[in-house]
């Protein structure tokens, strides 16, 4: 299953929020949709979910125009809300049936997910009787109802404690393992890095990059080496390296020095230099940037 987002444009008043964005998501892989606050993530997802209509462009599923009500789609909106005064089981069954499940399947699915989040004792109580954390679990559960083919999660980890985040990550991993299509919007890079196989980065309504996360990391880390030496500061190491190899660019990232060789110097040349210096090397190897580094670098380049 392949979901294509093609040249989507959306304006509110005179302000264009999405400037013709395009990317693809395939099933069996979780796609992290990244961007700063106000970048256009939720607007894209709301257009996809037909909460409002885009001004131009189209969504396609396996080459055909995508209609949310004609597919089994699980959706967790950024701004979550359910019926506070209604019984939890009743409203989960209702939401599952709205998405096309039979009453028996809806009841079974709702009970499964209530049990998954260990809230079985509350299922016949109104939502408002639960704590905020448990209410969030129920809201997450409704997205997983009825075994959706497509799961769209807008900022799913916001407000979740570490234990619930882990339970949720496991649930997403199960869905991905079943070969479902998962879109996961967030500005929390660590969660995306843990859960997603692919990433799409949106900034001010433009897509900056989209693709396989590991490949992106390799690409971004190409020609870069990480070095740190015991007993010396990164600045001291950097000065010595630059004196020997003036064509190398240096970057201080966290507790290490990143050397960009620009293919002018080989790894062996640098290794020989280090050996000649007699440094007590703490770390030396290929540099693989974190998602956060990629995000910052790409946004900086764009600006």
């Amino acid at each position: 299953m392949k979901l294509e987002v093609r040249d989507i444009r959306k304006s509110f008043g005179d302000r264009e929020i999405l400037h013709g964005i395009s990317f693809e998501v395939v099933s069996g892989r979780a796609m992290g949709f990244l961007g700063r606050n106000g970048a256009g993530k939720s607007t894209t997802i709301r257009c996809l979910m037909d909460v409002f209509r885009q001004d131009a462009g189209e969504f396609y599923l396996d080459g055909k125009p995508f209609k949310v009500t004609e597919n089994r789609v699980g959706y967790l909106p950024e701004e979550r809300g359910m019926y506070q005064k209604n019984k939890i089981l009743d409203q989960l069954v209702y939401f599952a049936r709205l998405r096309g499940a039979s009453k028996a399947d809806a009841t079974r699915s709702a009970n499964e997910w209530i049990d998954f989040f260990e809230l079985g004792e509350y299922k016949n109580k109104p939502l408002e009787t639960l704590s905020k954390g448990n209410q969030q679990k129920i809201q997450i559960a409704q997205a997983f109802l009825n075994d959706p083919d497509i799961l769209i999660l807008d900022e799913p980890f916001s407000g979740l404690d570490p234990l619930n985040s882990q339970i949720f990550k496991d649930a997403i991993a199960d869905v991905v393992a079943k070969g479902r299509l998962v879109i996961f919007s967030s500005h929390q890079m660590n969660y995306v890095e843990e859960v997603c196989d692919d990433v799409t980065l949106i900034h001010e309504g433009d897509i900056l990059l989209s693709g396989d996360l590991k490949a992106l990391k390799r690409q971004m880390g190409q020609n870069k080496l990480a070095l740190s030496v015991d007993g010396m500061t990164n600045s001291q190491v950097g000065e010595a390296v630059r004196a020997q190899f003036p064509q190398i660019t240096l970057e201080h990232i966290e507790d290490m020095l990143v050397l960009d060789t620009h293919q002018a110097v080989t790894q062996q040349d640098i290794l020989r230099f280090i050996a000649a210096q007699g440094w007590n090397v703490a770390r030396f190897g290929m540099y693989e940037p974190s998602l956060n580094d990629i995000f910052v670098a790409k946004v900086r380049d764009h600006q």
């Binding site: 979910m49 909460v51 009500t69 701004e79 979550r80 809300g81 359910m82």
Partner: peptide
């Protein structure tokens, strides 16, 4: 209460 976003994405 933001319930509408869920409903509108599931029904006409």
């Amino acid at each position: 209460s933001k319930t509408m976003e869920l409903l509108i994405s599931s029904a006409r």
